[in-house]
Write a protein that binds this DNA or RNA. Structure first.
Lengths: 260, 260
DNA sequence: CCGACTTTGTGCAAACGTTCACAAGAGCGT
DNA sequence: ACGCTCTTGTGAACGTTTGCACAAAGTCGG
C-alpha cells in the first residue's frame, strides 16, 4: 500500500471537485517551471493556485504520493503526473462549430494548443464565412461535421453557434462519435448517456456577480443609515405591469433584513 | 409564519449553489414566457433547466413560497421574483477591458443587454484598436479606466486582456471602485476583501473534458480484457521517475478506444 | 548517528449540497 | 361539503467537500 498504483486512483475515485482544480495546479506549476523553480511546497503552490494548502495536498494525494516530506514537490515531475491524470500527454483534436466572435476567440486562444489541444477544424453554416481563414484554419461548412470528426478522430467538440442551432449541432456531433462537448450556447443540451457536456455561459456568470454586487450595495446603504433602496417602489419590474405585484415593499423588507 | 417573508431567506441565507442555478431557471422561464405559457410545474421547469425537480423546489423555496400547490408556479411572477433576487431589476453598466476576440465576443453577446447588463465602455491598450468601433462602441484607451468607472458608475468589470496584463488591470479597476470582476485571463487575481471575482477559463473546461474522455477510453479498453496500463512498474522515487518519463502507450490506448 | 526542523499525507469532524419521500395545501368535479 | 388528484415545500437521510490538526517521514547541521 505504500505505492499507490494507477488502478487505485484513476479507475474510479478522484472526486470531481479535485479534477476541476487540477488544471489550476497545472497552470501554477507551469508558471513555476518557467521561472526555473525546481521544487515547491504545498503552501507555495496552493498560494499560487489560490487555494488552501490542505486542500491541495489532499487533491494531490488522490493521484499518488508524489511529494517528499520535509521538501515538497518536484515541479517537473508533478507537471507530468497531473498532465497524465488529466489525459494531456496525448493530443486532443477539437472541432469548433460556429465561427462567430466566440469561435474565433477560441481558435485564437493561446492556452489551447499549448496544453495538448489542437483545432482540427473550424466550421460554420454561413456561406459568407465559409472559406475564410481564421487562426490559420480555413473555415469549412457545417455540413462537414461527420467527415471532420471521422477524418481527424475528434472526440471533443465546442459549440460556439447561436442558441437555436446548438441542439442540432450537438446531435450531429454525438451521432458522429463525439463524446465530450463544450457548450457556449445558452441552452440546455440533451444528450444520451455517456456523453459529457460542460457549459460556459457568460450571462450566467454576470448574473451571479450582479447578485453579490446588489447584496453589497444594499448592505452598504444600510450601514449609512438610509432606509431602503427604493427600487421596488414604483418602477422596473418586468411583470409588474401584467400582474398585481403590489407586494410588501420589497426594498424595505430586504433592507431591514440584511442589516443584522 | 405561513407566509415566508423575504427576511427569512435573504437575510443571510441563499446557498451559493442555489444562486448559481437561478440564472438557469430564469432562462428557462423566459423561454416558457416566450411561448405564452403562463404556469409551470416544478417537474417541467426542472426538465427545461436540466436539473432534478426536488432541487429546483428547494432552490425556489429559498426565495419564498412563490408556488401554488396542486398547480405550479406562475411564470411571469416567478421571473420577476428570480430577477429581483439576482438584482436584475436594475441596470448594471459593465466595462470590458481588452478588445481582442473575447472582448468583442462579449460586447456582441446578445444575452448581455437583454438581462439588465449594458456595456458602458470597451477599452484596450493597443493604439491600433483604440478608436475603432465594435458593437456600437468606440474603443477607448485603457488609461481611461478610472474615468469610465467614475462617469458611468460601473460596478462590474470584465477582463478580456492577455494574462500578463490582467492583474494590473484588476488593480486599477478595484482602485477605481469596481467590486465585481469577471476574469477571462488564465491567472489567479489577487484582490482585497470585499471584491468578488469570478473566472471563466476555457482551457480548464477543456482539460476537465479531456480527463473524462480519457477515462472513458481507458475503461473501455480494460473492459475488453486488457490488463492495465503499465506504469506502476517504476519505483517510487521522484528523482528516479523524473528522468524516466518514458510514456506508456497512450496513443494506442486512445486509438483503440475510439471505435464505439 | 542524532536531534531539531520541515513538510507531506491523512483521520476525523463539521459544513455543505443533493435526493428521497411525504405531509400539507390547493383546485376540481360531483 | 367531500373526497380525489395534483403539486408544492420541507424534514430527514445520505453523500461530498472542506479544513484542522497531527503522526509519519523526510532533510540537514553538527
Amino acid at each position: 500500500m505504500s505505492r499507490r498504483t494507477r488502478s487505485d486512483s484513476s479507475l474510479q475515485g478522484i472526486p470531481e471537485a479535485t479534477i476541476a482544480r487540477l488544471p489550476l495546479y497545472l497552470r501554477a506549476l507551469y508558471a513555476l517551471a518557467d521561472r526555473d523553480i525546481a521544487s515547491v511546497s504545498s503552501e507555495e503552490l496552493a498560494a499560487a493556485a489560490g487555494v488552501n494548502s490542505a486542500k491541495l495536498r489532499k487533491d494531490l494525494s488522490h493521484l499518488g504520493s508524489y511529494g517528499t516530506r520535509g521538501v515538497g514537490y518536484d515541479v517537473d515531475y508533478l507537471i507530468y503526473q497531473v498532465s497524465r491524470e488529466l489525459g494531456l500527454t496525448q493530443d486532443w483534436p477539437v472541432v469548433i462549430v460556429g465561427a462567430g466572435n466566440l469561435g474565433r476567440a477560441l481558435a485564437n486562444y493561446g492556452g489551447f494548443a499549448s496544453r495538448g489541444f489542437r483545432v482540427a477544424a473550424l466550421l460554420d453554416s454561413d456561406p459568407a464565412v465559409i472559406g475564410s481563414v481564421i487562426a490559420g484554419h480555413r473555415v469549412r461548412a457545417a455540413d462537414e461535421i461527420e467527415r471532420v470528426v471521422s477524418d481527424y478522430g475528434v472526440m471533443i467538440g465546442a459549440i460556439t453557434a447561436p442558441a437555436v442551432a446548438a441542439q442540432g449541432i450537438c446531435d450531429r456531433l454525438v451521432a458522429a462519435g463525439v463524446t465530450s462537448i463544450l457548450n457556449f450556447a445558452p441552452v440546455v443540451l440533451s444528450v444520451p448517456d455517456g456523453v459529457d457536456v460542460r457549459k460556459v455561459d457568460l450571462s450566467i456568470e454576470l448574473q451571479i456577480l450582479a447578485f453579490h454586487a446588489q447584496r453589497r450595495s444594499v448592505v452598504r446603504v444600510l450601514h449609512r443609515g438610509e432606509p431602503g433602496v427604493g427600487v421596488a417602489a414604483s418602477n422596473g419590474s418586468p411583470a409588474a405591469a401584467k400582474r398585481t405585484l403590489a407586494l410588501d415593499g420589497d426594498g424595505q423588507v430586504r433592507a431591514e433584513a440584511v442589516g443584522s
